[in-house]
Each structure stands twice: as C-alpha cells, then as structure tokens.
Design a protein around this nucleic acid. Structure first.
Length: 464
RNA sequence: GGCCCCGUGGUGUAACGGUUAGCACGCGAGGUUUUCAACCUCGUAGCGCGGGUUCGACUCCCGCCGGGGCUACCA
C-alpha cells in the first residue's frame, strides 16, 4: 500500500462529456479517487470536448459541478482535445514513419467484404500512398495481447482476431483509442480505472502504446451498473445522475458510502463508513466482477443514517441550502424537531413547512381524526394551552396529559386532532415539540379554527 | 457470426476445498410509542443448470444456459 514519492500514482477518470454525470460514472470517479487518495496520489481528469459524430452538446461544466458536489478533488488533464492536436499528429507521424501504421483506402464496406472472404479474422489492409486514406495500426497475426487487469486478472485477446484498426481518419483527425493512449502516456497516468465496457478497447490502446514505445498503465475494469429491471441504468429508473441525486436531497457523504458499496464490500461487514475510512480500506483489487443493480432503497436508508448523525448546525446548514432559505434560528428549531424523521433533505420540508406557512389541510387525515369526541377534547386543549405558564414541550406534555387522565382517553384521541389542527396532516414531528416551536399564539389560532370548523360541520347537512 | 467479461436470497455484498453459507437494505411478525419515523427482538429468502476432479465442492476444471460488452474513418 505504500507509494513511491518519486513515482506518484496518477489515476485518470474520463467521463462521457455528453451530459450529466451518470451514477455509474460517479462510482467510477469515486473508485479512482479513493484509490488515488489511498496511495497518496491524485485523480486526473481527462474529458474529451469533441463529439463530432453525435453532435450532442458537450457539457463539461455540468460534470465538474457534479464531481465538486461529491467533494472529489482532481487535477485537470487536457479538457480541450484541440489543444492536443499537435501532439497527436506528432505521435501519428512517428508510427507511420516507423512503418507500424499505414494508410489504407478501404472503407467500412470494403472491410466487411474482406471478412466475408477471409472468414472471421482480423482485417489486414493494403498500404497505399493515397494521402487522403485513413491510417490503420498494424496488428500482429500471431500471439495474444495480454491485459493484466487488477480486477479480472490476465485477459488474453488473440491478435489474429483483431482488425488493423483505424487510428486516424482520412482528414487527419485522430480516433479515440489512439488519442487516449497518447494522452495517458503524456499525462503520466499510472492507473486506468473505468467501466467494463472498455475492456475490449484495452488491447487496442495497449497496441498503440507498444507501437509508441510507451510503458502502459495498470488497468482495472469495473462491473457495469444496471437499473432494477436489470437493464442498463437510465433515466427511466428514477435518479440516474448525480444531479438528480442532489435534487432528491441526498448527502454527498452518504452517496459516496453507498456508491463505494456498489461493487465492493468489507470483509468484516462494515457498512457505514466515513470517507476517511473508505480511503483507508478501499482497494481496487477487492472490487467484485459481477455487475450490480442500483437500488435507491438502501441509499435512502443510508442517507437517513448520515442525516441523523449530523450535528444540528451542520444539519440546519444543509437543509437551508437545499430549501434555499436562511439558516436562521427558526429553521434551526424546526430542524431540531425534524432531524430524526427525515431520510432525505427533500423530506424535511413536509415535516416543518407548517411552522413557516399556513398548512393546507389533508382532508383524508381530517376525516380520520376529527371524529366524535375530538371537539370537546380540542376545547379542553385550548383551555390548557391558554393557561400554561411557558410554552415548552415538557410543560405542554404535563398540561395536556391531565386532560387524558380527566377524560380517560387514549393519547391518540387528543394528540391526533391537535396535530391535524396545527400541521394539517397526521404526520409531523412530536406534538409537544411542534406546539412549542409553532408558539402559543399560532397554535391557539389554528386549534380555534379547527374547533370552529368542527362545530359548523356538526350542524351541517353532512352530519347525521 | 467472431472475440471478451460476468452469474451467492428481491437488492448490495462476505467467506471458505469441510461453517447451521455471514452482514446490510427490503419484506413479515412482535415490542416501544402522541402520528410518522427511529430504536429493540424474532423471522423470511440464496450458491443458474449439468458433468467431472476430490474423502469432501458455492469454492477447482469442462460444457450448457442466462446476462453484458466490443466487433465504427463514435467516445
């Protein structure tokens, strides 16, 4: 686990630049980061800003933003591939001059035809002088290209089955498998940790590095992530990107913990870990080989654990940021009584909203709770609340408790009507705490209103 | 078609050539309780299939089945 300071670990992460940071990509980034941090190295980003084929808008900012939210830090690699063009051209020329790459005018159809004739073998082209032809790398006919994968072990790819693949288009622009190999070498990348879908690309990149005479990095290919239906994870599976996770009210620390556990586990069954502990314990060699399904339920649970363990100031802070409010005293008081109940930041407001604005009454809850007996009990409650010395939970509990004894009713008979009266719903923080934070004046107001409505309903046509 | 990867309960995982196959989420039951949560207790459910190797396979080998990836002048 020790790192050689003269040869620092540099792991690189290359997210797809076409949109939001996908959850699978986030896990890859996290593993890269944990591994780098655990070795005293750094995470290096390589983002392609060119996407000519699909012509989708490239959104680098969005990805950097998501990584920042996850609280991962990085070293910026080449963001603009245009800036790398000279270097790519140079490497390409070197290979052509050395005769390990050659121009070939064959088109995709030509290659298909060639395979028709030669069977399922790797395509081998015919060198041409045509300067407008694509450049292909020569792949040996014999032997295997060996990928020494940190997770999969040694994987062999027979060279004979591999095409002389195109590394530069006819117009001179270079292709991905060539560009990454050159960039990784130039950036001094020591480890490439990425999705399984790149395993088959690895021999190509290895071949390029070999031809260039560069020392290849170590590779680790992670199992892919799928949605609950077993299909590739996508939008229709709910939250599929880091941005959506943030909007749903998850905490970065919880997301890191959860993502780390998606493909990796500890031998002693530890589940909840701080990020320092993750860094300490994580090793890429321990990552599993089977693809995993992203299931939000466990994330919710884990997030709830993290939220409950925060200290009140920090909690108030993140809640305020999520709600776009000021973390003032009132919000702090609201957070205090709601903290143990919410699993995500999104769930906080429904619990405390009644403290900030007039609640809308949940009619279903009203009908369920405002039954016979509610009216006189609410009357008693009003009286008790008016007469109470200080509006504090313990005092309120004692005072309202006396009504229970006098009337000989179960607690729910009294507390649920009060709850619905002041919060509008049957689900809220503790009733005494809720009353205390809401304050005497507004509590009385809302209960009076409920009493009024109850009285009216009784005499109305809907009563029996 | 060719090449490659993968297969432990519903989900994420742990372990091991020999254990009653562990833990967590979920789910179910009970407890606690002013609602909902939280918390506590108990429970539920798994080694894809078939051959080998072995005294003994979830574990090693082969085949099959199933899932996935690559097979672009995409990244």
């Amino acid at each position: 686990m020790s790192s050689d300071p003269s040869n620092p670990v540099r792991v690189r992460f290359a997210p797809s630049p076409t949109g939001a940071l996908h959850i699978g990509g986030a896990r890859t980034a996290l593993y890269n980061w944990l591994y780098a941090r655990g070795r005293g190295g750094q995470l290096v980003l390589r983002i392609e800003d060119t996407d000519r084929e699909r012509s989708t808008p490239v959104n680098v900012e969005q990805i950097l933003d998501a990584l920042g939210w996850l609280e991962l830090d990085w070293d910026e690699g080449p963001i603009s591939q245009a800036d790398r063009a000279d270097r790519h051209e140079e490497a390409l020329q070197k290979l052509v001059d050395a005769g390990v790459a050659y121009r070939d005018s064959a088109t995709a159809e030509d290659v298909a035809a060639w395979k028709e004739e030669h069977g399922n073998r790797g395509y081998r082209g015919t060198p041409t002088d045509d300067a407008g032809a694509a450049v292909r790398l020569k792949v040996p006919d014999e032997g295997d290209t060996l990928v020494a994968d940190e997770i999969r072990g040694e994987v062999r790819f027979p060279n004979a089955a591999s095409d002389d693949f195109v590394i530069a288009r006819g117009d001179g622009s270079i292709l991905y498998n060539f560009a990454v190999a050159v960039d990784d070498a130039d950036m001094g990348i020591t480890h490439v940790i990425r999705g399984d879908d790149h395993l088959s690309n690895t021999p190509k990149q290895l071949l390029v590095m070999q031809a260039l005479g560069e020392e290849p990095p170590r590779f680790a290919h992670l199992p892919l992530l799928h949605g609950p239906d077993g299909k590739k994870l996508s939008k229709r599976h709910g939250a599929a990107s880091v941005q959506e996770l943030r909007e749903a009210g998850y905490l970065p620390a919880a997301v890191r913990n959860y993502l780390a556990l998606l493909g990796w586990g500890t031998q002693d069954d530890t589940t909840i870990m701080s990020t320092d502990e993750l860094i300490e314990r994580f090793d890429i060699a321990d990552v599993g080989r089977a693809s995993a399904i992203f299931d939000e339920q466990k994330l919710r649970w884990l997030n709830g654990r993290f939220m409950r363990e925060m200290d009140l100031d920090a909690y108030t802070e993140v809640v305020a940021r999520h709600l776009g409010r000021e973390p003032d005293e009132r919000l702090r008081a609201a957070c205090e009584i709601a903290q143990e109940k919410a699993q995500t930041l999104e769930e906080v407001w429904p619990l405390i909203g009644f403290l900030f604005e007039e609640p809308e009454t949940d009619e279903k809850a009203w009908r369920k709770v405002m039954k016979d007996g509610a009216l006189p009990l609410l009357g008693d409650a009003l009286e008790a609340l008016r007469g109470v010395e200080v509006f504090e939970p313990a005092v309120l509990e004692a005072s309202l408790g006396r009504i229970l004894a006098e009337r000989d009713v179960k607690p729910g008979k009294l507390y649920q009507p009060i709850r619905v009266a002041i919060t509008g719903t049957s689900v809220s923080p503790g009733i005494f705490e809720s009353l205390a934070v809401l304050g005497r004046e507004r509590s009385l107001e809302r209960i009076e209103r409920a009493v009024q409505r109850l009285s009216t309903d009784r005499g109305g046509p809907t009563s029996r």
